[in-house]
Amino acid sequence: MEPLTGMGVMALIGAAATIAGASEDLESDVGSQSNPNSQVQLAPQMMYPHRIFNKAISGEPPSNALICAIGGTIASVLISSGASAVLALTIGAILAATVHGTYSVTSYLGRSASQKRFKQPIYLDIVRSHVPVMMGYAFITTFCILVVAYLMTTVLEHPFSLPLLAFIWGITVGAIGSSTGDVHYGAEREFQNVEFGSGLNAANSGNIVRKAESGLRNGIDNSWFCAKFGGPATGIAFGMTVFLSGWITVVFDASQSDALGWASIIAGAIIVLLLIIWNRNIEVAARNAYGPYKQDEEAEVAA
């Protein structure tokens, strides 16, 4: 393959992956999926009933792997029966989003119904307003991941099949979304009632913010806030992962010689080293900017 073509395809894959990462995180903010949902689930038990959508069908990686594998399998079957790729990927993503919507509804109704004894209401208008938003985000995520998997199998000639690549990238996008963007939702948005940077005392567990900028807070309010930082950052993380892991093998093409293959390994190692140094810089800057939370008692005693 021409190096220029390879780079163009990698750019397209990176862009699609970035959109997939951002929409995956925002979907999990609207529906409150994954780890931060533990607080939404806990709140009624601590006598804080709320109007936030409560789902957590499963951890984000299996949930996204499921919808991507469903979409990928349908798309693969349609392509093999002669449908155009664009149509096949779109229909695959629509059906995947439908499955996701079904799970979201049953999950919300089941979880809220089980909290009747804590006086947690089931809001039918929340189901009506939130489920289409979640399905929309799930469609975007699935479609973009299917585009990534399709380009990898057809243009970059990856040996894995389309559904398998979609499954793997579904697991990865979920793992990244739940490790990065969810922190913005779980540690900041849910607990805006404590001072910024004060840390979240475990004693505050369950005491989530329930009032919105206007009215009572719901999942869509949360995605509005997280779309400012958590969502795009998740997109950058997933885009970087897909792009960088593919880029090193496209630029240093191992099919020409093993030496170039080793060059790609070295390039990858340099990227990892740069990220370690960058992380250290952030750590030092944060320690200097925020300072310690408490005085050094040993130093005081010695003085």
Binding site: S179, G230, A233, I276, E283
Partner: peptide, 18 residues
């Protein structure tokens, strides 16, 4: 590495914790 560094952005810039 990418996941951890973006996670670190969240803790430092989004949550304000070192």
């Amino acid at each position: 590495s990418v996941t951890m560094i973006v996670g670190q952005w969240m803790y430092v810039y989004g949550v304000g914790c070192p």
